[in-house]
Simulated assay, not measured.
Amino acid sequence: MQSKNHFLLVDFLKTFAAFTIILHHLSSYGQIAEDARLLQPGVMTFLFEYGRYAVQIFLVMGGYLAAQSLSKTSNLKTPQDVLKTIINRYLRLFAPYIVALLLTIACAWVARFWVQDEFVGQSETLGQLLAHLFFLQGILGLDAISAGVWYVAIDWQLYAILALMLGMFPGFRSVIWILMVLCVTSLLYFNRLGEYENYFIYFIGAYGLGALAQLCKNYPDPLVNRFARIMFALIGVAIVIASFQQFWLRNILAYLVAIALIFFGDWAYKDQARDHKPIEPHKLFNAILWSSRRSYCAFLLHFSFILLANSLYIGWGMSRLHDGALALALMMMALVGSWMAANYLYRWVEVPSRKLKID
C-alpha cells in the first residue's frame, strides 16, 4: 500500500500540468507541430493557445508545497539558516537540471544539421551555459537553452523569497499580510507587464495563493488558519472586482486551483479504502504517483525530444509529405520518450542527488 503521505490531488495536478505543458510545447515548435495541425487543427490550436495556462497550476502547487515544507522546519531562526535553506533548494533542483541542459545542447547540435527553425537557436556559448547554471539567463537577457527552464529559475526565486519572509517574520501573521499584498499587486499589476516576467514579482500572485492555501488549513495554529482564510478571501474579492474591468483567465484558474487544494489537498491515498479496510490502491493511483515523482524530470527533458522528433521528421524526408498522421505519431513518440527518459533521470540523478545538501 502507498504511503499515507501521498496526496491524490497534489500528485494529479503535478502530473496533469507536466503533461499539458509538454503537449503545449509539442504543438508550438517545429514542422511536426505545423503538419499535425493539418490533421487536428482544433486540438492543436487549443493546446497552443491554452496549454500554457498549466504554468499557473505549477505555480500554485509550488507555493503550496514550499509553504508545507518551510512551515514545518525550525531551521529559519538566523540569516545563516535561511541562506542554507535557499542553497539546499538550489542543490535539489541542480543535478537533473544540468543533465537535462547538457542533453538539450547535444540534441540541438544534432538538430542544426537539418532543422532550419528559430526555436533551435544558435550554438550555445559558455557564458550562456554559466548563466543558466545560476538561473540568471532571463535576467541577463540571454536566449534560453531549453523551453521551460525559465520556470526553474523563477521557482527558485519564489522559494527564496518565501524562505526570507519566514526567516524575517516567524510569527506568520506578518508573512500572511505580506503575501496578501504581494498577491494582489502581482495579479492585478506586475503580472500584466512583460518587463517583469524574469522576476519573482511577476509570478508571486499564483505562488502566494498556493502558500496561503497551505496556511488556510494545514498549519497547526487555528488563529493562523483563520487569518490566512480571511486574506485568501480578500484576494478573491480583488480578483472578481478586477475581472469586471478586464478578465484574466490565468488569475481565475490560479484561484480555483488554490481553492481545490484547500478542500482536497490533504486527501491521502489511504482514504481510498472501503469499509475502513486497507486495500491496494487502484492502478490509476499508482500511475499518477509514478508520473508525479517524475514530472520535474519530464518537464526538463521534453524539449530534447521535440528537437529529435523534428530532426527525424525533416532529416528522413518525411516533412515533404506533410502527413498530419505521421507528424502526430512523432509527437506522441516524443511525449512517451520524454517520460521514459524521465524515469531514468529520476532514478539515476534526481533521487541520488537529494543527498547533496548543507547540514
Rank of each mutant, 00 (worst) to 15 (best):
L328C: 02
I86W: 11
V99K: 05
Q80M: 11
Y219A: 00
K355F: 03
P222E: 09
V224H: 04
I87V: 15
K77L: 15
Q68D: 12
Q80P: 01
A254H: 05
K283A: 10
F46S: 07
A309H: 07
Y50H: 14
A108T: 10
M231I: 01
W348T: 01
K217C: 10
A260T: 12
L8A: 08
S353H: 02
V120H: 06
S338P: 01
K77G: 15
Y344K: 04
V152C: 10
L47Y: 02
T185E: 07
L253K: 10
N286I: 06
M318D: 06
F7N: 03
G317A: 11
S295D: 02
M44N: 13
A327S: 10
V82I: 15
G315C: 09
I176G: 00
D155F: 12
Q40L: 15
A100N: 07
N225W: 04
A100M: 09
I178D: 01
S319H: 14
L330C: 03
A258V: 10
F12T: 12
M231K: 00
V110E: 07
V349G: 04
Y53E: 08
N218A: 12
Y296H: 11
M340E: 02
C216R: 05
R320A: 14
D323Q: 04
V149T: 15
K217V: 15
E124N: 12
A153M: 08
F113Y: 14
E49L: 14
M318P: 03
L328D: 00
Q245L: 04
I262K: 07
F247A: 06
F172H: 09
